[in-house]
Design a binder for these strands. Structure first.
Length: 203
DNA sequence: TTCGTGATAGAG
DNA sequence: TCTATCACGAAG
C-alpha cells in the first residue's frame, strides 16, 4: 500500500495554498489522529501577525530549518501552538487550529478532562493538549516519521476562506481556512453580515 | 466579558 | 530590571 504521508515537497509552496490544502488531511500523532478542519497561514514577509515580524528567534528558525519542520511555541503562559514551516516562493507557517478527532479519542478525553468530542480539539491550544504536543517536538521534521506526520485522507472537502482570528495586526487577510459547516472548528465562521460584505468589497 | 499565565523582546 | 504584548481558553 502506498504511503499516505505528506512529504516535504507539499510544504515547498505558497503558505496560503498550503494552509488551504492541509484542510481535510489528517494529523497523525502517536496513537492519536484527527482530521484537520481549521488552519491559518502566516507569511514571513509583509505580515505583521507573523512571529518573524517581531521575533528574531522565529527568523532564525526559518533560516535554519527545512520545509515541513514543526514550529512550536508557548502562548499566554498556558498553551502550546503547532505550526508547520513552509518554504516556497514565499516562506511562512501554517497554524493548525482545529481537528475533528478520529483515533485515540479516549486518550484525548483523559488528557483534556473533557467528554464532548466537539470540544476535544476545537482550538490550537486544545489540540496540542489532546495530542500532548509540546516544545520537545519543536523543529521536528513532520515529513518522515509516520507516527508524527500529516497524511492524505483521499477525502474531498469544501473549504471556506475567512479572516484570521485572535490577532490585531494584519487581520484583514482571509487566510483562515475551515471545512464548510464543520462543528469541530474553534470559532464559527463569520456569517456574511453587512459589515463584512462592505469590508471585503472595499479591499 | 474578564482574567490567569509565562516566554519573548525591546527600552531604560 | 521593567514593561508590553500576545496566533488562548475557561469561567462567569
Amino acid at each position: 500500500m502506498r504511503s499516505r504521508i505528506i512529504r516535504t515537497t507539499f510544504f515547498r509552496r505558497d503558505p496560503v495554498a498550503c494552509a488551504r490544502e492541509l484542510v481535510g488531511t489528517e494529523l497523525i500523532w502517536g496513537t492519536c489522529a484527527g482530521k484537520i478542519v481549521e488552519t491559518e497561514a502566516y507569511l514571513a514577509e509583509n505580515d505583521e501577525a507573523c512571529h518573524t515580524f517581531s521575533r528574531p528567534t522565529a527568523r532564525a528558525f526559518v533560516g535554519r530549518n527545512k520545509a515541513g519542520a514543526a514550529y512550536i511555541y508557548f502562548s499566554y503562559g498556558a498553551h502550546w501552538m503547532l505550526n508547520v514551516l513552509v518554504k516556497g516562493a514565499s516562506n511562512g507557517f501554517v497554524l493548525i487550529r482545529a481537528l475533528q478527532p478520529l483515533r485515540g479519542i479516549e486518550l484525548m478525553k483523559k488528557r483534556r478532562g473533557v467528554n464532548d468530542d466537539k470540544r476535544l480539539c476545537s482550538g490550537p491550544g486544545k489540540l496540542t493538549e489532546a495530542f500532548e504536543i509540546t516544545n520537545r517536538h519543536h523543529e521536528m521534521n513532520l515529513c518522515v516519521d509516520p507516527r508524527h506526520c500529516f497524511a492524505h485522507s483521499g477525502e474531498d472537502v469544501d473549504v471556506v476562506a475567512d479572516e484570521r482570528i485572535g490577532i490585531t495586526r494584519s487581520a484583514h487577510h482571509r487566510w483562515r481556512f475551515t471545512v464548510r459547516g464543520s462543528k469541530y472548528v474553534s470559532v464559527p465562521v463569520r456569517s456574511l453580515t453587512r459589515s463584512s460584505i462592505d469590508r471585503s468589497s472595499s479591499l
